[in-house]
Protein backbone atom coordinates (compact mmCIF):
# COMPACT_ATOMS: atom_id res chain seq x y z
CA UNK A 1 0.00 0.00 0.00
CA UNK A 2 1.17 3.52 -0.81
CA UNK A 3 2.36 5.67 2.14
CA UNK A 4 1.86 9.43 1.96
CA UNK A 5 2.76 12.30 4.25
CA UNK A 6 -0.32 13.38 6.20
CA UNK A 7 -0.73 16.97 7.39
CA UNK A 8 -3.85 19.10 7.83
CA UNK A 9 -3.67 22.84 8.47
CA UNK A 10 -6.78 24.11 6.70
CA UNK A 11 -9.46 25.13 9.24
CA UNK A 12 -12.00 23.47 6.94
CA UNK A 13 -10.96 20.03 8.23
CA UNK A 14 -11.35 18.36 11.59
CA UNK A 15 -7.81 16.97 11.77
CA UNK A 16 -8.84 13.89 13.74
CA UNK A 17 -11.92 13.16 11.65
CA UNK A 18 -9.85 13.45 8.46
CA UNK A 19 -7.10 11.10 9.66
CA UNK A 20 -7.97 7.61 8.42
CA UNK A 21 -5.17 5.03 8.61
CA UNK A 22 -2.78 7.66 9.96
CA UNK A 23 0.20 6.89 12.20
CA UNK A 24 1.96 10.06 13.24
CA UNK A 25 2.46 12.00 10.05
CA UNK A 26 2.16 9.01 7.68
CA UNK A 27 -1.04 7.84 6.01
CA UNK A 28 -1.52 4.37 4.54
CA UNK A 29 -3.65 4.69 1.38
CA UNK A 30 -6.69 2.46 1.06
CA UNK A 31 -8.06 3.23 -2.39
CA UNK A 32 -5.35 4.98 -4.34
CA UNK A 33 -1.65 4.84 -5.16
CA UNK A 34 -1.48 8.64 -5.43
CA UNK A 35 -0.25 11.13 -2.83
CA UNK A 36 -1.41 14.74 -3.03
CA UNK A 37 -0.31 18.08 -1.68
CA UNK A 38 -2.36 21.25 -1.56
CA UNK A 39 -0.72 24.56 -0.65
CA UNK A 40 -2.10 28.06 -0.21
CA UNK A 41 0.07 30.89 -1.50
CA UNK A 42 0.53 33.44 1.30
CA UNK A 43 2.85 36.41 0.93
CA UNK A 44 4.27 34.80 -2.19
CA UNK A 45 5.19 31.56 -0.42
CA UNK A 46 3.43 28.18 -0.43
CA UNK A 47 1.99 27.16 2.94
CA UNK A 48 0.80 23.56 3.52
CA UNK A 49 -2.99 23.30 3.44
CA UNK A 50 -3.54 19.53 3.11
CA UNK A 51 -1.16 16.61 2.50
CA UNK A 52 -2.60 13.09 2.27
CA UNK A 53 -3.48 10.10 0.14
CA UNK A 54 -5.37 11.41 -2.88
CA UNK A 55 -8.94 10.12 -2.72
CA UNK A 56 -10.08 12.42 -5.53
CA UNK A 57 -7.62 12.22 -8.43
CA UNK A 58 -7.55 8.99 -10.44
CA UNK A 59 -4.23 9.55 -12.19
CA UNK A 60 -0.72 10.50 -10.95
CA UNK A 61 1.89 9.73 -13.63
CA UNK A 62 4.84 11.45 -11.93
CA UNK A 63 7.14 10.01 -9.23
CA UNK A 64 7.86 13.47 -7.81
CA UNK A 65 5.45 16.21 -6.71
CA UNK A 66 5.50 18.91 -9.37
CA UNK A 67 3.12 21.70 -8.47
CA UNK A 68 0.57 23.36 -10.68
CA UNK A 69 -1.09 26.60 -9.72
CA UNK A 70 -4.84 27.04 -9.63
CA UNK A 71 -7.32 29.86 -9.41
CA UNK A 72 -5.02 32.80 -10.09
CA UNK A 73 -2.14 31.38 -8.05
CA UNK A 74 -4.21 31.11 -4.88
CA UNK A 75 -3.48 27.36 -4.64
CA UNK A 76 -0.70 24.95 -5.59
CA UNK A 77 -1.46 21.32 -6.09
CA UNK A 78 0.78 18.33 -6.81
CA UNK A 79 0.18 14.58 -7.19
CA UNK A 80 2.79 11.81 -7.29
CA UNK A 81 3.05 8.04 -7.13
CA UNK A 82 5.92 7.09 -4.77
CA UNK A 83 6.05 6.65 -0.99
CA UNK A 84 6.08 9.96 0.90
CA UNK A 85 6.57 11.81 -2.39
CA UNK A 86 4.20 14.62 -1.34
CA UNK A 87 6.59 15.90 1.32
CA UNK A 88 8.88 17.70 -1.13
CA UNK A 89 7.31 19.90 -3.75
CA UNK A 90 8.91 21.11 -6.93
CA UNK A 91 7.92 24.75 -7.24
CA UNK A 92 9.11 27.58 -9.43
CA UNK A 93 7.50 30.86 -8.38
Amino acid sequence: LRRCVFQVTSPNYDKYAAARNVNGSIQLCENTHCCVGYYVIMNGQPKVDYLACDSVEKSCPSSVCETHSHFNNRFLRCVCNTDLCNSNIIWTP
Binding site: P11, N12, Y38
Partner: peptide
Amino acid sequence: EVMDWNEHGTYL
Protein backbone atom coordinates in the same frame (compact mmCIF):
# COMPACT_ATOMS: atom_id res chain seq x y z
CA GLU B 1 -15.92 13.25 -4.43
CA VAL B 2 -14.07 16.46 -5.22
CA MET B 3 -11.59 18.87 -3.68
CA ASP B 4 -13.27 22.23 -3.38
CA TRP B 5 -12.02 25.43 -1.77
CA ASN B 6 -13.20 28.54 0.02
CA GLU B 7 -11.54 31.51 1.71
CA HIS B 8 -10.20 29.24 4.50
CA GLY B 9 -8.49 26.69 2.24
CA THR B 10 -9.34 23.33 0.67
CA TYR B 11 -12.05 20.88 1.66
CA LEU B 12 -13.30 17.50 0.46
